[in-house]
Nucleic acid binder design. Structure first.
Lengths: 226, 226
DNA sequence: TCAAAAGTGTTAAGTTTACACCCATGA
DNA sequence: TCATGGGTGTAAACTTAACACTTTTGA
């Protein structure tokens, strides 16, 4: 390529780091990894990877997520760019953090194992490399402040879920208990959370109705609200 | 430097683009520039610059802001990273967008002139280079949704301002008119907006009390709210 | 028959919105 | 003296929060 005006400026490694949230046993968890390369090999860190030539940064994040979980089409939001000069002690790396919400039952455990990746409760995160803890903090803040505004929680649950499960998820994310009747009233006002004919019998003798998130209904709802 | 594990990965130009908001004559405005270099020299764009070696990305944004406005210590928030492969038609550039709020009276007009930079009403933005319009859209969304939650509007006003000026600023940002009494009631509940002894006589015969934002009182308030 | 989770409405408290007049002053 | 923007409180509408019992069924 011919030299451009741009050529005089320095170039940098650019990475993506993924804060992968999952929900299991009533706890909000994050997927952490023992770093597979030097420097700091073996230390706890987020899952990340370098952006490739001819790869959008969001595609890089999707690729990392696919490699680590086996899932395509994961719900993902950019948290922001982290670019302090000395944030990475190996070499200068500018990193873009992405938060992802996954249904933990959907994860390929074998892939996790191959990458030394483990789920850790959000409240039990060990010391992490570089600024990864700050990334988690910002991602959690995003999750916490969006959970009541946008229907994103569903990505952490199986396709069918009971209202009790949904409420417990909200409670885990907000770290406070919610009133059952008020919670169900609010959910009842969301036309995109649909009761199905299915009944879950694993959690109680009586059985609980299973609900699903209807994405199409949600789009209708959004257009209607404009 | 010795080759590291990182060396095998590609490097990229990294830029910052600044969405600089100002408020003048009752209108919310953005500082735009006629691009000073090829490709697309002369086209309208945001103000930006390349990140340097040994420069934090936020420092790069501050530097661009200083070069263009003559002000240090500008209020600034990161909007996000933009990294589509072909977003910049010159060469691949990953860009971090920053929104800045400035007191437009404080700006060095000479510097603006030297950089072919002009203030344009938000509602009158011409076609812009690359994804710059999307950056403005996201920055405006941030401003609009934060203005009612956090005391950031003051950065767009002179140090002393009347409540009418403040209300008009809010109205310009929200693009809707507000009730004077309700507005003043809400402001009255904010201990960090202090009435000063000064009176502004330029806008009315009677004169209006001038207020200021007290940063220290705001910190107290935040700690108290925890 | 009882233990365990599911499901269901009403009232009080708090917040937000709507609304209209008097004041002080310079021209 | 009047035109102009500055300043002030109250009541209705709406939203949020608090609260307890009945239902179903498998063990």
């Amino acid at each position: 390529m011919a030299p451009t005006f741009y050529s005089q400026y320095p170039k940098f490694h650019v990475a993506v780091d993924c804060i992968i949230f999952g929900y299991q046993a009533g706890k909000l968890k994050v997927l952490l990894q023992q770093r597979p390369f030097e420097p700091h090999k073996g230390d706890w860190s987020l899952l990340g990877g370098f952006v490739q030539e001819n790869e959008d940064i969001s595609a890089a994040a999707q690729r990392v997520l696919l490699e680590l979980t086996g899932i395509t089409n994961i719900f993902m939001t950019q948290i922001g760019a982290f670019g302090s000069v000395h944030r990475d002690t190996g070499d200068r790396v500018i990193s873009i953090a992405y938060a992802a919400l996954v249904d933990i039952n959907n994860i390929d455990e074998q892939l996790n194992h191959e990458h030394s990746a483990y789920w850790e409760e959000l409240s039990q995160i060990p010391p992490l490399l570089f600024d990864h803890k700050e990334m988690i903090k910002q991602a959690y803040h995003m999750l916490r402040s969006n959970i009541g505004r946008k229907p994103i929680g569903f990505h952490l649950l199986p396709p069918l879920f009971t209202l009790t499960q949904l409420q417990q998820l909200y409670e885990a994310i907000l770290n406070e208990s919610l009133d059952k009747r008020n919670f169900r009233k609010r959910i009842g006002e969301m036309p995109y959370i649909e009761k199905t004919a299915e009944i879950d019998r694993t959690s109680s003798k009586r059985g609980a109705a299973l609900y699903k998130f209807n994405e199409q209904a949600y789009c209708h709802y959004l257009n209607f609200r404009l």
